[in-house]
Write a protein that binds this DNA or RNA. Sequence first.
DNA 1: CTGTTAGCGCGTTCAC
DNA 2: GTGAACGCGCTAACAG
Lengths: 351, 351
Amino acid sequence: MSKRKISIEDIARKAGVSHSTVSRALRDSPLISSKVREEIKRLAQEMNYVPNAIAQSLQNQRTYTVGVIVTSIADPFFGELVEGIEQVARLAGLNVLLNASHGDFDQEIAAIENFHYRRVDGILVADSRIGKHYTQQLTQFTVPTVLINIDTEDQSKTFHSVAIDDRLGGCLAVEHLLDLGHIRIGYLGVGDGSKADQQRLEGYRMALNQAGLTQNTNWVAIPQRDEQAISDIDIGKKMLPQLIAAGITGIFCYNDMVAVGALLACKELGISVPENLSLVGFDNIALASYITPPLTTVSQRMVEMGESAMTMLLELFEGKAVDNILLSPFLVKRESTATVSRAKKSVITLR
Amino acid sequence: MSKRKISIEDIARKAGVSHSTVSRALRDSPLISSKVREEIKRLAQEMNYVPNAIAQSLQNQRTYTVGVIVTSIADPFFGELVEGIEQVARLAGLNVLLNASHGDFDQEIAAIENFHYRRVDGILVADSRIGKHYTQQLTQFTVPTVLINIDTEDQSKTFHSVAIDDRLGGCLAVEHLLDLGHIRIGYLGVGDGSKADQQRLEGYRMALNQAGLTQNTNWVAIPQRDEQAISDIDIGKKMLPQLIAAGITGIFCYNDMVAVGALLACKELGISVPENLSLVGFDNIALASYITPPLTTVSQRMVEMGESAMTMLLELFEGKAVDNILLSPFLVKRESTATVSRAKKSVITLR
DNA sequence: CTGTTAGCGCGTTCAC
DNA sequence: GTGAACGCGCTAACAG
């Protein structure tokens, strides 16, 4: 905003009218004669007039801006989510203010305060790693807020949300392995206490129960909550061996990055996928289809999730009553899973 | 902004002072006695007062907001870039307004106009696929702007920029292949007319010249400019066969996604990498290290590029004179490249 | 149809 | 030290 831009007053002076006439003309008010309106519009164009959103906001009490909080922008998962959000926001004439929390509680609170300070019209929060802590912190504010993939105690009452059905996803993954003849099936989680981790594990258990299979605690590998933030890739690498030791033939991984980590560990250990071991991921990030072998995974359509959340926010703006959305994931079969017959043999051969 | 928030007037009334006293107290003006200042601050806290950034902006003529334009948010390349931008922006008390152009010229212009409308303090543009078209469009505005990886005619004069040294990158890639004994080296480009594509090709040629090698036009594969936007992956897939037919043993690819495409094509054709063919990418996106084989590539540190660009913008805000930045890429050796001896044999065996 | 006036919430002279 | 008054750029209520 270096040089002062021209205002409606400037063009009013030049047109020999009052500033309110200009304001009306520019906004196509029916109160203005078409002659002056055209003349004013011409002048505005000629003078390179750009209306001042700040002044409008002060008057309208609306900023046409939504705040979006994600864990990390560099994470492809959130990248696609934001892509969906931005797309429908732009179509609605809204802008996106982006903040990253890096999974840090304080930074997330700071981001929310910042959004209130800037008077955003609505807030979107996507940070599955933080959980339900800040339910209270959010309550004191009155800005329409939609939570994405976040579990809160009274989620359905106080907050609006769109989330993926993680339990269903877990079922789908395990059922797929069961269909392939696997019996010794493991879960490789992240242990961050998130709803996603817990519910995917629950889905895993449901599917096994339904199949009438006894479960072995050794089949579930979840790292200790660590002070150090450890990447999903490293979690997969680190936890794989103990599942192998437990004699499993198929693993449902918390997400694709964990699965990739497990895959890398397999390569180091000389375990070939899917011959010796079947791997199922979650998320269906782009990477999943490019690695070798392409990853069988439970797909959440992240762009669509962003679109849904933003659409819900728009409906809230209009005062509509909205229902929370639970999106259904679906299985994408690729080449990291195979029938167990081959796997059994290979594992035995391996010894 | 549903319910009207409380203003300094509200707390002024309650404190029995004027609103300007409150304003001063909150901003730690030395003109205010410490007693009233503390009392006012206490009141503000108690009443849950949140200053109104909009009103402040109108007064200060600053929004503490920067506009960022990228091609696509979902693209990991831009994701990391924005990550870097957002990080230093937040530390400086600035917020990021994010717009995606999807490589569309009109949308990009619209984004810029939108940013002016909203009176951002500065603009960051990263969209290597658009090129120099809109130099003029940008000129009429006076907002500090930093171009990221964009080539403009008079770049150094009118605009500020941070970019990667694509020519150097091309050299590094080809020199690596030469070191491995390759002589028949190809370039697989995208032909979008971007500076990046042209300069990487130029680097390729420089390295070959310097090695005293004669060049073969068949060794450069660049798709026809197509009406249909075709993905980088597909470009790699589609163009690989003709380079193979030309008898090359090593390929420098425009970027990692193109290289991944080429790699996938290799798998389909039964060409094993790096035994039969060496592949070098560009960008070093996360994917590059996870695929099989892990990709040797020219690395640009995208997060750092974002940080540099944002830092430059901050310096422009302070009225400092800044020099354009040309970041040096570096080679990351992984497993998609190998000495030519093996490759030669394999190729012959292949026939 | 158009001009005048009054805020939106805040920072900043200029007086006292 | 503090309050009154003005303006940032714009929309809207009220006159005419």
